[in-house]
């Protein structure tokens, strides 16, 4: 068992989930409540990583942060090296790749809240921001949990983006899924089996936890 790969994968998944929940909350709020006509464009854009092959997404991340792009030069100016084949590169790629998995559960949760509760909060003197933190977010607990767990699990098992952006550097970018790939390539089926089982078990536990949590979540109007 490659413990280094497991540790690295856990670190990557936690960091990605944490970044995504912060990024996705405002985006999901906007998608749920905005009445702009071009909202559909943002929705389509936010869902794009669902349908794109991971290799394509990884390729674009490489191009966007390559040394010939303004973004890449800015990154290089700040950090002194390119994004490709670094742990930070993995995080950026994973954030893009799991973005829809964070946004969609939140949007669904927000939309399930009775709009009257939001009106009631506003009439009682709460600002939009206060209403978000005191009413919308607590009532979306299950959506938040789902978003975190899904992004974590999705990142945990990802392969294509990681390979494209990070390559296969032990301790830096070699995640569990890549480790399994390497072991199979090397004909080491026993090791691949153990690692795969760990990946499977962790993924299952996370999904089971989501569904257990959602079972006792706040319904929309418990008395209706």
């Amino acid at each position: 068992m490659n413990w280094q790969a497991l540790e690295l994968t856990l670190r990557l998944s936690c960091l990605t989930a944490a970044i995504l929940i912060v990024l996705a909350l405002p985006v999901a709020y906007w998608v749920a409540y905005s009445r702009r006509r071009w909202k559909f464009l943002v929705q389509a854009l936010a869902s794009l990583p669902l349908v794109m092959p991971p290799t394509v997404l990884g390729f674009y991340v490489l191009v966007a942060f390559g040394s010939s792009s303004p973004l890449g030069r800015l990154w290089q100016h700040w950090t002194g090296h390119t994004l490709a084949f670094t742990f930070a590169g993995l995080v950026v790629g994973s954030v893009f790749y799991s973005f829809p998995f964070a946004v969609q559960p939140l949007v669904n949760s927000f939309l399930a809240i009775d709009p009257k509760l939001i009106d009631a909060s506003r009439v009682l003197g709460a600002s939009r921001l206060a209403t978000f933190f005191r009413v919308i977010l607590p009532l979306s607990a299950s959506g938040v949990a789902t978003a975190i767990a899904l992004t974590f699990a999705h990142t945990f098992g990802e392969f294509g983006v990681v390979l494209m952006v990070g390559g296969d550097i032990p301790g830096v970018t070699r995640t569990i899924s890549i480790d399994v790939f390497d072991q199979v390539q090397a004909g080491n089926y026993a090791a691949a089996n153990v690692t795969s089982l760990v990946l499977l078990a962790v993924s299952f536990l996370i999904l089971a936890a989501i569904y257990a949590w959602n079972r006792r979540a706040w319904p929309r109007a418990p008395w209706a």
Binding site: L117, D119, A120, V123, A221, A224
Partner: peptide, 12 residues
């Protein structure tokens, strides 16, 4: 002050 038909109490 505004009171809605279905009370709109915060369920949490």
């Amino acid at each position: 002050g505004y009171v809605f038909q279905d009370s709109a109490l915060f369920p949490h």
